[in-house]
Design a protein around this nucleic acid. Sequence first.
DNA 1: CAAGTTGTTCGACGGATCTCGTACAATGGT
DNA 2: ACCATTGTACGAGATCCGTCGAACAACTTG
Lengths: 104, 104
Amino acid sequence: MTSPLTHPAVEELELAVVLHAFSDPIRLQIVRMLADEGPRTCGTFVVPVAKSTLSHHFRVLREAGVTLTEPEGTQRVVSLRRADLDARFPGLLDAVLAAAPAPA
Amino acid sequence: MTSPLTHPAVEELELAVVLHAFSDPIRLQIVRMLADEGPRTCGTFVVPVAKSTLSHHFRVLREAGVTLTEPEGTQRVVSLRRADLDARFPGLLDAVLAAAPAPA
DNA sequence: CAAGTTGTTCGACGGATCTCGTACAATGGT
DNA sequence: ACCATTGTACGAGATCCGTCGAACAACTTG
């Protein structure tokens, strides 16, 4: 609601940063939900953390270039930057998703 | 030289832990060297950190299940657990290696 | 305009991480 | 035996990370 929502460009994505974004159970869960059910607003993610913590994770994912966050009224729609990730790190997202928990 | 060199079993490998092991530039560099030139002793890795720091990174990689460390006289031979990683997280190692720096 | 909804920001806390230098252990060679 | 080589273990320090609650900002709706 304040910041200009900065996202890194495709050529700016760094492998170590993206991997670090993936290396947290909560964020992994978020990525999995995004992959399974498409873009959603922040509030629809049911994870066992406080709202501010969830906001923190969205920032990490966004700044790493994993997700795209777009304002939409009072809410924010979060989506996976699948094409960008595939272009920069071919196969990485698929491999992570294939191995991510709760594949059911 | 002291510890019994514990390695996690294949079924014990955790995605978040492995990803975290990959999410450091130095360790990424180590993994790349291992993939490119096969098993090597600890001392043959030329990285810009102190010896004790390098030892720390080897421990992180080993405990995550990324590498196998075997005593060999005074030295220790480090190798990639490629088959185990592929079995547990298909495509992950390849994707990381394909995206890792210094692909030349 | 007032109130409610949605999500961020801030400060704080505990714990983990990366880094180093020094000291130590284990093996091999002289 | 003694020493050199190889790598680990042990603090220690600085930084970062994940977590929370409380306060704030932005937009929608009554």
